[in-house]
Amino acid sequence: MRVQVPDRRQIRVRHLVPAFVVAGMAVVGLVTSAASGDSPRSAAGPPAGAISTPTTPVPAASLARPSASLARPSVRSPITYRTPTAIGQGGALYQTNCSSCHGPAAGGSSVAPSLQGVGAATIDFWVSTGRMPLANAATQATRKVPRFDRQQTLAIVAYVTSQGPNYGPGIPSVDTKSASLPEGESMFVLNCAACHTITGSGDALGNGAYAPNLHEATATQVAEAIRTGPGNMPRFGPGQLSDKQVADVVAYVTGPIKHPDNIGGLGLGGIGPVAEGFVALLFGVGVMMLMAFWLGERA
C-alpha cells in the first residue's frame, strides 16, 4: 500500500475560543438569573396603571363571618399595635416617606390611591416586603429590602389604620403547628400554582404583570397576601379558604416551597425546562461536541 498523508488543518485550542466565550457569557447569565430571586419581567408594553389600587369595598356580610374556631384559631389578628405612641411615630414616618404620593391623611392623590380603610394587613404586606416606598411607578411594584424595621412598620400601620374605619383584615398571626401539609399542597396546587408555578418560582402574566416568586415570603406575608390579594392577585376570603386552609397553605409555602428537596442536586431556580434544557444543551451537548472534535482529529 502507498500511504498518503494529505494536508490537514489541526484543531487547536485557539479555534475553540469563540465557543468558550459564548459559553462563559451564557453561564454567567444563568448564574445571575438564578441567583436573583425575582422572576423575569414579561415583555414591556404600555404600563397598566401607575400604582396598583387597594382592595375595593366589600359588603359587610362577608366580613361579619366569625373566624374559624374559638378553641385555637389557626390565623388570628393581634390587636395591640395601635397605641398613641405608635400612632405618633407612625405619623412622623408616614409624613416623611409616604405622604408625598398618598396624601397627608392617607387620602390619596392623583398618583396614588387612598389608604383609608384598607386595613392593617394590606399596609403591613406592602411595607414589610419592601414594595412600598415604590421604586418605579411605571412597572409592577417589586419586592426589595424594606426601608423600615418591624417596629417602624407597625407604627406606620397604626397611623394609617387610625385615619378612619377599616374594612380590610387585620395582621394575621399564623399558627402552623397543626397544619396539614398534604391539604396545603392540594390548596396550593388548586389556587396558587397557576400563577406562581408549582415550585413557587413565579411567572409572567399578561400586560407587563408577573407573579413573584415565593421563596422570600414569611408566613405572615403569605397569609396577608392570601387575604388581601395585593395588586393583580385575587383575594381569597374566609368563605373561600377557611383560616385552617390558609394555615395549611402557609405551612406548605414556608416548608416545601421555600426549602425544596432538589434530590437531583441543583434546583436551577425551579423554573423548569428552560433552565434544565439550557444546562443539558450547554454542558451535555457541549461536551459531546468537544469529544467529536477530538475523535475526528487526525493524529
Partner: peptide, 8 residues
C-alpha cells in the same frame, strides 16, 4: 357572597 370582590 363567599367569593370576595377581586377573588376567583
Amino acid at each position: 357572597d363567599d367569593i370576595l370582590t377581586g377573588g376567583s
